[in-house]
Design a protein around this nucleic acid. Structure first.
Length: 419
RNA sequence: GUGGGCGUAGCUCAGUUGGUUAGAGCACCAGGUUGUGGCCCUGGAGGCCGCGGGUUCGAUUCCCGUCGCUCACCCCA
């Protein structure tokens, strides 16, 4: 029997769990600060929820299975389709806008390399029902709040921002059929990552010959808004949204974190407007997080569209960055009191003491075995306990327990009421 | 998918030019100290040397295969 977890998955021993909880606590805290409500959905969904035909890698990497009734199911590779399903299921009964968040475990079957596994936890924040870039500004402000809380600054992290509507305008001028927009976006996303020849056949199938691809490459090379505005028109909606967004970002005080980058497209098919990804400025890592606007996702599931945007933020890359910056804490256990009975006859008394302490909300490690006191002290050191509470014959006869502060060494006898 | 590195105690690793009983540190247990921790001392337990085959009088060591882990490349959110 192989005792290792399946390839690409992780065990979380208590020490790992403490660190994970530390990170997740920041996710939860920031969500609360921004007024987002938690939700969750099954890890296992109908495979059809995730299967799209735009050539996305995430669809090729689905973990799928057939259950005993022959249903075609998949482990979720991302959370957004489940969120869309939940919103659709409630019809019009949900009071918009929704500001929801979750920290789901997501799965994808892919080859293992450094910092890439087959399972990760991904903090998701989504705003459903707001069609203005005020929503994107809110999401990015939350991202910045998170980075600041874990000790990162605008000197460490850059959030690249773009808007797919600009690419859409370019494609329209090149007479690329509108129904190919999503698939072309997925290919353009690959332009920077694979040799151009590798995807030219796919480009041609979608209506883009060499000259048109040249035009797209030229357009994605811009790192400033002005030349693009000249390209697609100063009053184009994509340009106006970006300008409005930047104004909002300045008012939020987060503009130092942001950078316009026309090459940013993202590899998911459903984005329709603003898109963004955060990167470490100097450490070579994959994107820390990414997101964007997906105003037409709900109609692909047969429902009425509702404007929405959101981001996903995986636990893996940020953990690597924080570790490299020595910003990742290694918290110890959180036991307050160790309760130890000197003799078997005092076990009942020790249980009473432990119960009393727990009623006060203290974390109590009651020694369950017949051990020598030396062992109890060593265990107290290992668990980081603050006090040793000794239930001893003479003191107990007087209605008291002997309490030792483990950091100062001070000792005193206290009654149950004084504990 | 290609190439490299590594598989020896719970963990990190040493070692064996092929030879009797495979070592260390940390961790664990016991004792020194029958009611007081961290330090120290002494002792103990713990190994199909990844698995299978081959060569050999003899393999943890050499050879072949295989599985696992890992890094780089390839590919990709």
């Amino acid at each position: 029997m192989d005792l290792a977890p399946p390839r690409g998955t992780r065990d979380f021993y208590p020490q790992d769990m403490r660190r994970r909880n530390w990170l997740f606590a920041h996710f939860h805290d920031v969500a609360r600060l921004f007024g987002f409500e938690p939700y969750d959905a099954p890890v296992l969904e109908s495979a059809g929820l995730f299967i799209r035909k735009a050539g996305e890698e995430i669809v090729d990497q689905l973990y799928t299975l057939n259950d005993k009734s022959g249903r075609h199911l998949a482990l979720r590779p991302e959370m957004t389709p489940s969120l869309a399903r939940m919103v659709l299921q409630k019809g019009g009964s949900l009071a918009l806008p929704l500001k929801w968040y979750s920290v789901p475990q997501c799965w994808r079957y892919e080859r293992m390399t450094r910092g890439r596994r087959r399972e990760h936890y991904q903090w998701n924040m989504d705003i459903v029902g707001v069609d203005s870039v005020t929503a994107e500004a809110e999401l990015l402000a939350a991202l910045v709040a998170f980075f600041e809380r874990v000790g990162l600054s605008a000197a460490d992290v850059v959030i690249k921002v773009s808007n797919r509507k600009i690419l859409q305008a370019v494609l329209e001028r090149l007479h690329v059929p509108a129904e190919h927009f999503a698939a072309v976006c997925v290919l353009v996303d690959k332009l920077e990552k694979v040799p151009r020849e590798a995807i030219m056949a796919d480009m041609a199938a979608l209506g883009l010959d060499e000259a048109k691809v040249d035009r797209v490459v030229e357009m994605t090379s811009f790192r400033a808004l002005a030349p693009l505005a000249a390209f697609v028109g100063d009053q184009h909606q994509g340009i106006r949204e970006l300008r409005r967004f930047w104004t909002l970002a300045e008012e939020y005080g987060i503009e130092d974190w942001l950078s316009f980058d026309a090459s940013l497209v993202r590899g998911l098919a459903y984005y329709t407007g603003m898109v963004f990804e955060a990167f470490s400025r100097d450490v070579s890592l994959r994107a820390l997080c990414g997101g964007g606007r997906y105003d037409h996702l709900l109609s692909t599931f047969g429902g009425k569209d509702v404007p929405a945007c959101g981001f996903g933020f995986g636990d893996a890359v940020i953990t690597e960055l924080l570790a490299e910056r020595h910003l990742l804490p290694d918290p110890g256990p959180q036991v307050d009191d160790v309760v130890f009975a000197y003799a078997p006859e005092l076990r009942g008394a020790a249980m009473q003491v432990a119960r009393r302490l727990r009623q006060q909300g203290r974390s109590v490690d009651l020694i369950l075995e017949e051990r020598r006191i030396k062992w109890a002290f060593r265990r107290a050191d290992q668990t980081g306990a603050r006090r040793m509470v000794l239930v001893a014959p003479d003191e107990w006869a007087a209605g008291q327990v002997h309490v030792k502060d483990l950091s100062t060494g001070q000792e005193q006898n206290l009654s149950l009421e004084q504990l």
